[in-house]
Design a binder for these strands. Sequence first.
DNA 1: GCGACTTTGTTCCTGCGTTCACAAGCGGTT
DNA 2: AACCGCTTGTGAACGCAGGAACAAAGTCGC
Lengths: 218, 218
Amino acid sequence: MSSPRPRIPEATVARLAVYLRVLAGLADGGRSNVSSGELASAAGVNPAGLRKDLSHLGPCGIRGVGYEVATLRDRIARVLGVERSRPCVLVGIGNLGTALADYAGFGSRGFRFVGLFDAAPARVGQRIGGQPVRPMTELAEVVAATGATIGVVATPADVAQSVCDRLTAAGVRSILNFAPVALSAPDGVDVRQVDLSVELQVLAFLGQQRGTTVEVTA
Amino acid sequence: MSSPRPRIPEATVARLAVYLRVLAGLADGGRSNVSSGELASAAGVNPAGLRKDLSHLGPCGIRGVGYEVATLRDRIARVLGVERSRPCVLVGIGNLGTALADYAGFGSRGFRFVGLFDAAPARVGQRIGGQPVRPMTELAEVVAATGATIGVVATPADVAQSVCDRLTAAGVRSILNFAPVALSAPDGVDVRQVDLSVELQVLAFLGQQRGTTVEVTA
DNA sequence: GCGACTTTGTTCCTGCGTTCACAAGCGGTT
DNA sequence: AACCGCTTGTGAACGCAGGAACAAAGTCGC
């Protein structure tokens, strides 16, 4: 009703997550106040842009002083919807999947894996980070029981679409995909793609361009 | 000189890498021709946008027919600078680093790891994907000997900046950073950040927004 | 040989994101 | 109590990316 929340640009949301991480670190370090300049420097962005990002949350700083670390952290966390830990499921417990399941950073950022799944019988039953790997047959059951709305796909490319279908059928609404394929999901389901080799190739291009600024050997 | 190559937008470069992957798959499947519509569908983008991206390479299609798969693939690979395999070094052989070192996808995308490094003595000497983990003291030597220009950082956040400094000092010009900190590098060095928890938090926000379109329980 | 269809390459336009620069507000000081 | 410096928040301009529509060009069928 009285929520002045027209919409927050997606690029801003991504940066808010970065600010949140920096603020959490500052709070742990005992800091109570920060200026936009210092925060922007730590996050690697422009100070004016940071203030504009924060303006989407309404006024949350004190002019002449700066921002209160704990207050700003909590407000960003609430806006992002990570004040409470969110249940996620992870499919594909290969090298990357194992790394993700073990990554402690997720736990402190408002996410917890409530189910690890793999199609290979050899993987099922292994324990990773204190959790057992389950067979794919239990996917729908676990999603329903835990209310998980986020699924992470770390499978080979050839089965990623099939896994995506099963996740959405089970009720997952958001998917983070590490497999190098474009997934198609029904309307109402958000898919984000993380492609590691694309990142490397962009770097390769930038590096090459730096070497051959305009000159090209025809 | 006669190179009509003013500049290619970075967003286009990232999509070119995706097209390259799709084209490689089509070529492996025996396909010889593709239309922009089909290619765009497989890459998950708009057909008109795809044609605009490709127009940066100069005319490379045949009107009324489409694109020749092998030709287009090779041209994109040449523009991205991945026609020949590029040597990379990887620092931080934890769970994620091991997954990256083992990931076969890099090899087929024009990248090979010529050095795996870790500061922990317990890790040094282990073999991963046929390569030994080396101590950090050998970093500069290996970079110089192999001519590696790309470094991947998969260390904990608190040492990432120090690793970045050592990489740049050794001559690395491009850095892909998985640690959740903003790295500062000298001018002339490109840094790309991949932050897994940021991706999850964006998903969480989008999912939450979907639930509470305008209504908020105050 | 000619026409029609298909598909590319390009152009325009709309909207978004980013940056710069200024006004408003608060704390500390005299 | 009034002034001064510092920092936030906002308004405007610039540049870029994305999408739709149109023209050029080549192929297939007759």
